Measured scan of single mutants.
Amino acid sequence: ATNIVGKVKWYNSTKNFGFIEQDNGGKDVFVHKSAVDAAGLHSLEEGQDVIFDLEEKQGKAYAVNLRIK
């Protein structure tokens, strides 16, 4: 899925991951530091509006192509 809109539920910059809540009511999506770095960001803030693509690997969904809304 592409261009999914959501809000950062939480992001832990020490542990380098967090979760994004989808605006469409879907399951929360894992986001890793690598996606944050690829977006040219240092971190994510709770409540921040983002747009992302959804990829699945080994049955787990995660956010890629992250951008600030």
Rank of each mutant, 00 (worst) to 15 (best):
T2S: 15
N3A: 08
K7C: 03
K9D: 01
K9V: 06
W10P: 00
W10A: 03
W10V: 05
W10E: 02
Y11W: 09
Y11F: 13
S13K: 11
S13C: 04
S13F: 14
T14F: 11
K15I: 10
K15D: 06
K15V: 12
N16Y: 10
F17S: 03
F17K: 02
F17E: 02
G18V: 01
F19D: 00
E21T: 15
E21K: 13
Q22E: 06
D23P: 15
N24P: 11
N24R: 13
G26W: 10
G26R: 10
G26H: 10
K27W: 10
D28N: 06
V29K: 02
V31M: 07
H32R: 04
H32C: 03
H32W: 04
K33G: 11
K33I: 06
S34V: 14
V36C: 03
D37S: 12
D37W: 07
A38T: 15
A38C: 04
A39L: 07
A39P: 02
A39G: 11
A39R: 02
G40E: 08
G40W: 14
G40Q: 11
G40N: 11
L41A: 06
L41S: 05
L41H: 15
S43C: 04
S43L: 15
Q48F: 10
D49K: 14
D49P: 12
V50H: 01
I51A: 05
I51H: 08
I51V: 08
I51M: 13
D53H: 05
L54T: 14
L54Q: 15
E56M: 15
K57C: 04
K57T: 15
K57I: 08
G59K: 08
G59E: 09
K60W: 07
K60L: 11
K60Q: 11
K60A: 14
A61Y: 14
Y62N: 11
A63I: 03
A63S: 04
V64G: 07
V64K: 13
N65L: 05
N65G: 05
N65H: 13
N65A: 07
L66P: 02
L66Y: 00
R67C: 04
R67I: 13
I68G: 07
K69C: 03
